[in-house]
Nucleic acid binder design. Structure first.
Lengths: 339, 339
DNA sequence: CGTTAAACGTATAGCGCTAAACCTCCCGTG
DNA sequence: CACGGGAGGTTTAGCGCTATACGTTTAACG
């Protein structure tokens, strides 16, 4: 069946298309209440839905937001971690609430970003899952409102949403220090030198009052497993490990146990995120929880403000929104073993 | 900066817009190679990207596909399981390869489906994560090409993609039977009576040559935990549990262990999916692996065929594509304990 | 040499919508 | 009573693209 158009409604209501358009868009300044009521009734009856394409052409605005994610090597999976999935879900919900739609797209380079943005005239984009370097290479054009999740924006033309990583590191450090830990290993993707990672490390160092040993590992269970065994071997005097993600922490814990260390008796393990996996493994992981749903909502909010033309640098120091974190103590952390 | 349009290219190349349009769309019947080359050069130089909105209006086709998912009660998370995430990722990749875009949308009722489809003139939709009942209530209109993942379509106007659930159940049954198990518990969302669940149950029964006991549980770790304890209590003679998902199986295993049963010595546990969690828990879960990436690709393929106007019922019995499954033996299954 | 028909285009119209300019009453006011 | 002005519309133009119909040339062929 053919689409119901403004024209159809206009004909049936005996008014011009513009009047219908005004009613539909709540532009009631020039429409009498009686006419508006009639039009609204017919719109409802006929199930009229405006054409986004036509609105896009005529008004130059789409109410369409792109979620740009890295294309994985196998080209197949794009929402890397449970963390990202949760953020994406909250983002979609928040946008939907504000009558916007979300377009999902994996991108590898500037060309693909341009293509998506221009082809669909996206009002804005949310960028997630890239390292700082990748992000820089992606070179998001300055003229499209953008919000970056979990990375730092270089030139500062875009907004950013991050957990309060420094605070998270500090909470971790304070927790471990209170348990008597002095020799702590910090494990995560330290090579990428992203602000997310360095922030957590800074917070940890600050609270500990000492320099933690760092062990590089990607944020995967398998890397954690290897890192755990390596830590048991190369840092036998460490009494605690703080990992930048729960998946990683879970792997580390398994690796430590496989190497014969007891958790938390011999070594404490502390994760980050409070992902589901923290509750699945045994012992359950103590962790720094971050509010991923809040992150998604904040990203939506920030982006919509940018789209409205708000200048964020006016209100926030570097255009970055920090999401609060909290310590969740479970079974994987305990008092430092005394040698 | 303003958008580069066909007109801009046309002016610069000294030809009409139609010629440029023809070149861009590879419609080279009416264009001399020389002209085509010139136009292509300029298109490249200026970074021309066609406007999807304009194409949509003029050609009535968008190359846009909607991924419809259930809105969760908190309105926030929409990709329920790792399984869904993986399928979505593969779907996006496959569509991208074929020059289509993916729109992500949580929906609760017919109105919202209609709204998304009509507003953006979606060429088709993929529907995932709904129970058979919810799907029926959603009432996807017959005139929009649709592919349903992991559910059965009632009136058969849409295509469907499912794992070969009966075969999966059979593999599970054969594995357990070979290990000497006779008293097997089948655990999953049996109340929903979806074909996915009943198919697996049928396969299991078939291979076992006996009726398994069924225990109802939602597909979550927490429900699994409760179910595990309940099984230990109410079915102490059961020597194996087959769960419809790995998360669930992980919970069941933990519940059984908490109740004092040893896995697999006292009870074997067998999951489904081969999700990451199967490798995280201890003992690692034996499971029936399904190719989620293949599922996403198949959904894309099927949908594109439907969009092209193919009649699937001609080739396939019920318009359903079945994705193969395979048994993965790890640590959670072993020989039946002899009483 | 006249007729055709490829080959290579261009002109026109319209998809559904909105911004902006433009009408036309009718009422209150000086 | 002329006039301003608001209330309640309508008309016009155009967003960027494609389908369709409509020209031109050139070459081939009887």
């Amino acid at each position: 069946m053919p689409r119901v158009t403004l024209k159809d409604i206009a004909r049936e209501a005996g008014v011009s298309v513009m009047t219908v358009s005004n009613v539909v868009n709540g532009n009631l300044g020039r429409v009498s209440p009686a006419t508006a009521a009639t039009v609204e009734r017919i719109v409802e009856e006929r199930g009229y839905v405006p054409s986004g394409a036509a609105q896009s052409l005529a008004a130059g605005r789409t109410r369409l937001v792109g979620l740009l994610l890295p294309a994985r090597q196998d080209g197949t999976a794009l929402l890397g971690s449970p963390h990202d999935v949760s953020v994406a879900g909250a983002l979609e919900a928040a946008l939907r609430e504000r009558d916007h739609h979300l377009m999902l797209r994996a991108v590898e380079n500037t060309r693909e970003v341009q293509d998506s943005v221009q082809r669909w005239n996206l009002d804005g984009v949310v960028v997630m899952g890239f390292t700082d370097d990748e992000l820089r290479a992606l070179d998001i054009p300055d003229d499209v409102p953008a919000v970056v999740v979990d990375a730092s924006v270089g030139d500062g033309h875009a907004g950013a949403v991050r957990a309060d990583d420094v605070d998270g590191g500090r909470l971790a450090g304070e927790h471990l220090a209170a348990l008597g830990h002095r020799r702590v290993v910090f494990c995560g993707p330290v090579d990428a030198r992203s602000q997310v990672v360095t922030g957590r490390l800074d917070g940890l160092r600050d609270a500990l009052g000492a320099d933690p040993v760092t062990v590089a590992a990607n944020t995967t269970y398998e890397d954690g497993l290897a890192a755990g065994e390596r830590i048991a071997r190369e840092h036998p005097d460490a009494t605690a490990v703080f990992a930048t993600a729960d998946v990683l922490a879970a792997g580390i814990q398994a690796g430590l146990i496989r190497a014969g260390r007891r958790v938390p008796t011999d070594v404490s393990v502390l994760g980050f995120d409070d992902a589901d996996i923290a509750r699945y493994v045994s012992p359950c992981l103590s962790t720094i929880r971050q509010d991923t749903a809040g992150k998604g909502r904040a990203a939506a909010e920030l982006l919509l403000q940018l789209i409205e033309g708000a200048d964020l640098r006016a209100s926030r120091p570097d255009g970055t929104v920090h999401i609060g974190v909290e310590l969740v103590v479970r079974e994987s952390t305990g008092p430092a073993s005394v040698d």
